[in-house]
Amino acid sequence: MVLEHALLSVNPGEEDDFEAAFAEAKEVIAGMPGYQYLTLSRCLERPSIYLLLVHWQSLEDHTEGFRGSTQYQEWRRLLHHFYTPFPTVEHFVQVQSA
């Protein structure tokens, strides 16, 4: 399993609109091959910062499958205008747990 990590800096004052758009966008990603689940969390200290974690079966399911799809274009349309700056997306594999 691969964990996608993105720290989303939402334009201040647009948090409610972002959360509404994300509710729609999560339906877009949910049907993608290799998608397992996601969580979106809001920072308590900096309320315009969100942490997006998406679990994929493989790196390629995200980088090639999702990002190369027409569904990704809808995801972009719904969400990308909320970010300043545009987030860095990184991928992780678990090495330990407790």
Score class of each variant (00 low, 15 high):
residue 1 M to S: 15
residue 2 V to E: 09
residue 3 L to E: 07
residue 4 E to S: 14
residue 4 E to R: 15
residue 4 E to G: 10
residue 5 H to S: 06
residue 5 H to R: 12
residue 6 A to D: 01
residue 7 L to P: 00
residue 8 L to V: 04
residue 10 V to M: 12
residue 10 V to D: 07
residue 10 V to C: 07
residue 10 V to F: 08
residue 11 N to G: 08
residue 13 G to T: 10
residue 13 G to D: 05
residue 14 E to I: 01
residue 14 E to A: 14
residue 14 E to V: 01
residue 15 E to D: 08
residue 15 E to I: 14
residue 15 E to C: 09
residue 16 D to W: 03
residue 16 D to A: 15
residue 16 D to G: 01
residue 17 D to H: 12
residue 17 D to T: 13
residue 18 F to L: 09
residue 19 E to T: 08
residue 19 E to R: 14
residue 20 A to D: 08
residue 20 A to I: 10
residue 21 A to I: 04
residue 22 F to V: 13
residue 22 F to H: 11
residue 23 A to P: 03
residue 23 A to T: 14
residue 23 A to E: 14
residue 25 A to D: 01
residue 26 K to H: 07
residue 27 E to G: 14
residue 27 E to S: 12
residue 27 E to K: 15
residue 28 V to H: 01
residue 29 I to S: 02
residue 29 I to D: 04
residue 29 I to W: 03
residue 29 I to T: 12
residue 29 I to Q: 04
residue 31 G to E: 04
residue 31 G to L: 05
residue 33 P to N: 03
residue 34 G to S: 03
residue 34 G to V: 08
residue 35 Y to L: 08
residue 35 Y to M: 05
residue 35 Y to P: 05
residue 36 Q to C: 09
residue 36 Q to G: 02
residue 37 Y to L: 10
residue 37 Y to T: 12
residue 40 L to Y: 08
residue 40 L to G: 07
residue 41 S to F: 01
residue 42 R to D: 02
residue 43 C to F: 00
residue 43 C to G: 00
residue 43 C to V: 00
residue 44 L to K: 11
residue 45 E to Q: 14
residue 47 P to S: 03
residue 48 S to T: 10
residue 48 S to E: 11
residue 49 I to N: 12
residue 49 I to M: 11
residue 50 Y to K: 05
residue 51 L to Q: 13
residue 51 L to I: 10
residue 53 L to Y: 12
residue 54 V to N: 03
residue 54 V to H: 02
residue 54 V to Y: 00
residue 55 H to W: 08
residue 55 H to V: 14
residue 56 W to T: 11
residue 56 W to R: 05
residue 56 W to N: 07
residue 56 W to F: 10
residue 56 W to E: 07
residue 57 Q to R: 14
residue 58 S to F: 05
residue 58 S to M: 05
residue 59 L to I: 04
residue 59 L to V: 13
residue 61 D to C: 13
residue 61 D to G: 00
residue 62 H to S: 06
residue 62 H to E: 03
residue 64 E to G: 00
residue 65 G to E: 09
residue 66 F to L: 10
residue 69 S to M: 07
residue 70 T to A: 15
residue 70 T to S: 14
residue 70 T to P: 03
residue 71 Q to R: 13
residue 71 Q to S: 15
residue 71 Q to Y: 00
residue 71 Q to D: 15
residue 72 Y to I: 06
residue 73 Q to Y: 04
residue 73 Q to F: 06
residue 74 E to S: 07
residue 75 W to R: 03
residue 75 W to Q: 05
residue 77 R to T: 09
residue 77 R to N: 12
residue 79 L to E: 04
residue 80 H to D: 12
residue 80 H to F: 15
residue 83 Y to R: 01
residue 84 T to R: 15
residue 85 P to K: 06
residue 86 F to A: 15
residue 86 F to K: 14
residue 86 F to E: 13
residue 86 F to M: 14
residue 88 T to D: 08
residue 88 T to R: 13
residue 88 T to L: 11
residue 89 V to S: 04
residue 90 E to Q: 14
residue 90 E to W: 01
residue 90 E to F: 00
residue 92 F to Q: 02
residue 92 F to A: 03
residue 93 V to C: 06
residue 93 V to D: 02
residue 95 V to E: 09
residue 96 Q to W: 07
residue 96 Q to N: 10
residue 96 Q to C: 11
residue 96 Q to R: 11
residue 97 S to E: 13
residue 97 S to Y: 08
residue 97 S to D: 11
